[in-house]
């Protein structure tokens, strides 16, 4: 145990501190996803609108967000606001802003994809039955898109959780930062603790993400048949 550095985890409140760090990451992901989903749905629907100007502007904005590494976005929001504009933006707040922007872009792309994947004859056969446009959306299109979207949105949660690991690099105290602190504090007594502690962080992330991606996979399989 000592050789692998697992012993430090059972010292004092170390495990609790690690879990607390994980909770910071999870909290930021949950808030960001909660903002992303409604905003993404609205933007996704706007992106299928007939207005070319709206579509063009949205497209450029969303493609930019999607093509930039999330790290770059974090840096822009964090350093630009704090250093250049002199705001006292905390790392957590900057992260939520960036992840919500990114999540919205991803979500809107999923919504757009789901909407255009519904074959035209679905709209037509709805109208042929005498349904109004609203009824066609309400009873035919939305139920089909929702089934497609739910597994993908759940997947977005795991992607978000994994991405939150980046906030370490703008100084937010999350699970990796706590891990660093624990390793540093025990450098003398347990020089090998980096192995055990980082392995634990690896597994903690896995435990947080795996059930969620299993759920997404299960729903996808169930509804695709």
């Amino acid at each position: 145990m000592q050789a692998l550095g697992l012993d430090v985890l059972f010292k004092g409140k170390n495990m609790v501190r690690l879990l607390g760090g994980l909770w910071v990451a999870l909290k930021i992901s949950i808030i960001s996803v909660a903002i992303s989903i409604p905003l993404g749905i609205i933007l996704g629907m706007l992106m299928t609108s007939k207005n070319k100007v709206i579509r063009g502007i949205l497209r450029v904005y969303l493609e930019f967000i999607r093509i930039m590494p999330q790290m770059v976005l974090l840096f822009i929001v964090f350093f630009e606001t704090t250093r250049v504009w002199g705001w006292d933006l905390k790392g957590e707040t900057a992260s939520v802003i960036v992840f919500a922007m990114w999540g919205t872009a991803e979500m809107s792309d999923l919504v757009r994809g789901a909407l255009i994947s519904i074959p035209k004859h679905q709209y037509e056969s709805g109208s042929a039955l005498g349904l109004t446009k609203l009824q066609v959306y309400l009873y035919i299109i939305i139920p089909q898109t929702v089934r497609r979207l739910i597994p993908l949105s759940i997947n977005l949660i795991t992607r978000m959780i994994k991405t939150t690991s980046l906030i370490l690099l703008i100084g937010v105290v999350e699970v990796l930062k706590v891990a660093q602190q624990i390793i540093e504090a025990n450098r003398m007594v347990s020089p090998n603790s980096a192995f055990g502690v980082y392995l634990t962080v690896f597994l903690l992330y896995f435990i947080a993400c795996w059930p969620i991606s299993m759920l997404a996979k299960y729903l996808e399989r169930k509804w695709n048949t």
Binding site: L168, A194, Y198, S213
Partner: peptide, 19 residues
């Protein structure tokens, strides 16, 4: 697929040398 690259790198770079 269920772990972040950053954590994978930390484990490989800082963890593995200890064993």
């Amino acid at each position: 697929r269920n772990t972040p690259l950053l954590v994978q790198l930390f484990f490989i770079y800082y963890g593995l040398p200890k064993v």
